[in-house]
């Protein structure tokens, strides 16, 4: 991959004594969509907050468009903010409650001193493009439906025409019939605006429908990263396989899934297990796994996996 838009190199993030992200590396090619999956406590949220420069990393580096973005300040930080936007998990909570939607959409322009008269027609186009009627402009966030609030959040993230869009659980809490709408919209916008996307979701189906590549996080570490077609169809890491088999899939006629559910729960990042952090829950764990932390290896199809006994041979 030449000249990625975002490259994250051995990024670690601690909250006090607790490591939330441990030496995560990945690169995001221009126009690509990377899905980040993992359970609560896997460090997904910390990772994207660090990637957007909202929390300073403890170690490692972040490069956006070739330039180091750790410790950016003032004008440079503002320029980066303009280029990297985010859709929040709880859309209604991410909209300032006392402002009208009109002001919420104008806010990004005001912050970046873009003349409103010039840019407003573009905002109205965007509003229609995300499927909102003009009537919402004079409403407050609590007066619109959850699906509409999400569309406002999407429009707001795109007002500044960013290059990188981070979507944090874009379909969480949505009904099935609306979930498809939002995924379709995001895919359409990604194409239309040539966006590079980082999509965080616990819903593997949503990631499958959107992502070119997938990164699987467990306890702040990358356990597997590779093309979505490979990782989500033939997982190489036992955790990825367990995650794919865990949630009951809609499969009329068929009863419970073949792979037994994973035992135990995600351990506390405060006291991570020795060796491979997944070994206490792994059905394939050997003595080696409890003693030695696996080194990431690259498989023939290009994916990277951190496992002593991957389900596929290198």
């Amino acid at each position: 991959m030449t000249d990625p838009l975002l490259s994250v190199d051995r990024l670690s993030l601690n909250f006090g004594p607790v490591p939330a992200v441990r030496s995560v590396s990945f690169a995001l090619a221009r126009g690509e969509t990377l899905g980040v999956v993992g359970e609560s406590g896997s460090g997904k949220t910390s990772l994207i907050r660090a990637a957007l420069g909202l929390v300073p990393p403890t170690a490692g580096s972040l490069r956006f468009d070739g330039a180091d973005i750790t410790g950016l300040r003032g004008r440079d930080l503002k320029a980066f903010r303009r280029a990297a936007q985010m859709i929040f998990q709880d859309p209604a909570a991410a909209l300032s409650p006392r402002m009208k939607i009109r002001d919420l959409l104008a806010e990004p322009l005001r912050i970046h001193d873009v003349p409103l008269a010039e840019a407003w027609p573009g905002v109205l186009d965007l509003l229609r493009r995300v499927g909102l009627p003009d009537g919402v402009l004079d409403k407050h966030p609590h007066q619109v439906s959850g699906g509409q609030a999400r569309r406002v959040g999407i429009a707001r993230a795109l007002v500044l025409r960013p290059r990188l869009l981070v979507a944090d659980e874009p379909t969480a809490g949505l009904d099935l019939s609306v979930q498809g709408d939002i995924v379709n919209l995001l895919v359409d916008l990604q194409r239309g605006f040539g966006l590079t996307c980082l999509v965080v979701s616990h819903n593997l189906d949503v990631v499958r429908a959107m992502a070119d590549r997938v990164l699987v996080l467990y306890l702040g570490r990358v356990v597997e990263i590779g093309a979505a077609d490979h990782v989500l169809r033939a997982p190489a890491h036992p955790y990825t396989r367990a995650l794919l088999a865990a949630a009951p899939r809609f499969d009329p006629g068929k009863r419970l899934s073949r792979v037994p559910p994973l035992n135990g729960e995600v351990p506390s990042p405060r006291t991570p297990p020795s060796g491979c952090v997944f070994h206490p829950r792994c059905p394939l764990a050997t003595n080696l796994c409890g003693a030695v932390e696996p080194v990431e290896q690259t498989l023939a199809d290009g994916r990277r996996v951190a496992c002593h006994t991957p389900l596929l041979t290198p």
Binding site: L52, L54, L77, K78, R81, R82, A84, Q85, M86, F88, Q89, D90, A93, A94, L95, S96, P97, M99, E107, P108, I111, H112, G153, R156, L160
Partner: peptide
């Protein structure tokens, strides 16, 4: 609150977040 963080992501300065939001 997410709405204050959202303003940070948009690039708003601390004084603006305090006064407006």
């Amino acid at each position: 609150s997410p709405f204050l963080e959202a303003e940070r992501v948009l690039g708003a300065q601390p004084w603006r977040i305090t006064a407006h939001h």
